[in-house]
Design a binder for these strands. Sequence first.
DNA 1: TCGTTTGAGTAAATCGTTTTAGTAAGGAAT
DNA 2: ATTCCTTACTAAAACGATTTACTCAAACGA
Lengths: 357, 357
Amino acid sequence: MPRKRREKTEPNGRTVNGRTAVSLKQLAAHLGLSPTTLSLVLNDAPSASSIPEETKKRIFAAAKELKYRPNYLARSLRVQRTHTLGVLVPELSDGYSAMVLNGVEAALTNEGFFYLTASHLHRDDLLEKLPGVLIERQVEGIIAVDTPVRFEPNLPVVNVSGHDEIPGVTNVILNHQHAAELGIGHFFDLGHRKIAVLKGQTFSSDTEIRFDTIMKAALDRAIPIGKKLQQQLEGDLPSPEVGYAATKKLIATGEPFTALFAFNDISAIGAIRALEEDGMRVPEDVSVIGFDDIYGAAFHNPALTTIRQPLFEMGRLAAKTVLQELSGERNGNAESVLNVEPTLIIRQSTARVPKAH
Amino acid sequence: MPRKRREKTEPNGRTVNGRTAVSLKQLAAHLGLSPTTLSLVLNDAPSASSIPEETKKRIFAAAKELKYRPNYLARSLRVQRTHTLGVLVPELSDGYSAMVLNGVEAALTNEGFFYLTASHLHRDDLLEKLPGVLIERQVEGIIAVDTPVRFEPNLPVVNVSGHDEIPGVTNVILNHQHAAELGIGHFFDLGHRKIAVLKGQTFSSDTEIRFDTIMKAALDRAIPIGKKLQQQLEGDLPSPEVGYAATKKLIATGEPFTALFAFNDISAIGAIRALEEDGMRVPEDVSVIGFDDIYGAAFHNPALTTIRQPLFEMGRLAAKTVLQELSGERNGNAESVLNVEPTLIIRQSTARVPKAH
DNA sequence: TCGTTTGAGTAAATCGTTTTAGTAAGGAAT
DNA sequence: ATTCCTTACTAAAACGATTTACTCAAACGA
């Protein structure tokens, strides 16, 4: 049973269903006016002031009637602005990037901007290629989310959770010292002295400072964290699996600990599973702190105590910053770091150190 | 401390750092050739066969040296193809859309396509406006994810989890009968006869069939599900909160049940929390089945038994379908439904019905 | 009455490509 | 010696807007 719609597609790919999308020229012809006049009126240009209301009305009416929609491509080409950004992310389904993207979008839509997303999946070839492709498509700026910047930043570039100081790249980063203080401080206050740490995967831009600041905060409280209590996450699946595996290894060393500082919520969830499988209850036997506060952290069982990163806010800030550079309100060479603050969210995965210890 | 980079930004917004992005014309001038020749050679057009290797080499060399990158806008305008799709989603951070987007992207990147994402947040004004804006930007097709299609589909449109039969719109949908059979069948096999259901929010496109098929599957086994054992999710937060609230209400009715079929994993997680708060253990006292199998379902505590939707696959299929329509391999008016199959993933949130019942 | 405004528009260039339809020079064929 | 191919290119139109620099008529001022 054939259904109605596009009866035919022109060789050029343009759709013809009764009425092809009208161009300004066609609309002008229809009205017996020149495209110039229409453009002036439709865009409310200053020089349209001499055009009588009467004519303007006719133009608007015809535009509505024939469903005229300016071709953004043509306009962009002419005015040399695409109102489009490129966003580089490792992957979309890890909860982290999606939340940042949400913030990006919130900042962009009001300004009439859109964005092209490109996932590099931690693949070197894509990390090389994608920025160029985005630039070819005339994006006006690039937001790299947890992604190393390996291209010449000759357009506004903001790196969310980027830690390399690259001229021309603005980094939006969490105050990691503060985050580490909050986490370790919380453990310390609960009486924990044997703390283990899950270090992030090598490809994650936060891995190093998060680890270093945690070590420092612990040391400041005279709680050195030995080699045996450090485990690095391995594998690039955005699933709790990696935290699970790392925690298994941690347990296997035999070194006792009463608290575990996970790299993020996802790995904390995997860690808890591993701990419980080994007969250690959370938080009765071991306290666990996550990082990020993704959706779901609150509803995990036990609900995750975690260091919240304002991911939405970070995305929004990144986008706002690019927009400011574009509008000239901000100089791309100005201050290269924008800090955001973490919050300690105390839930059920942490408790006082067990008596035995 | 001023840093180096874009020393200056031209009034037109184009970057000038030493070397402006070169145009084909400039490259041609540099070589003493015409833009035509370069275009022919660079695109390896058939008529470039008469150009000697020597010249071709010069052209490629110069292009590389001056970092020539064709302006995609100009090209798109000329050839009337943007190689860009628009994707409409309710929200990015709910895990569902992100997963579908992942699949979309996987199908697109090999084909040189990109996509613009637009979230409508269930807002009517955005649902009206966004499709038009995407079309203005000359997207070649639209993928609507769990989003009603309220615009004229005069370009390829695929709706993921869309259930309205709209001429010209292809729906990618899960085989819900099968899904319901799997879930209710599983409960039945475990001995459950008192089954409660969480119905989705009204705005979700899957709400109706999912509910209807579940009711039907239950009835087929002579287990009618009374009004009191049905609760509808309310609120549009993509968080377990809504499942939690609905389950509280369910409990409040006093009607006993030993199994709960949640609308999705997120709400299942909230439901489990509510149940446990009320002293009912999962799965010992109540069995819970989720839907979707999002990341995290496996690592929830208890691990969620769930009906998996192949979300990645659905995204990929949607994108592939649009591409096929564009290439003419597929007629947009052909078969309007593409089915994908669910899988029952048995984990820890379901068990045999307790003896007492 | 002549020059100057003002009003109501328009022609043409432009953005950076692609593509169609050539051209001009040299050699081969007749 | 003329025609006809090749070879190696190029001019110009086109895509669909925006924008600069006009034109032409009527009205106004002196």
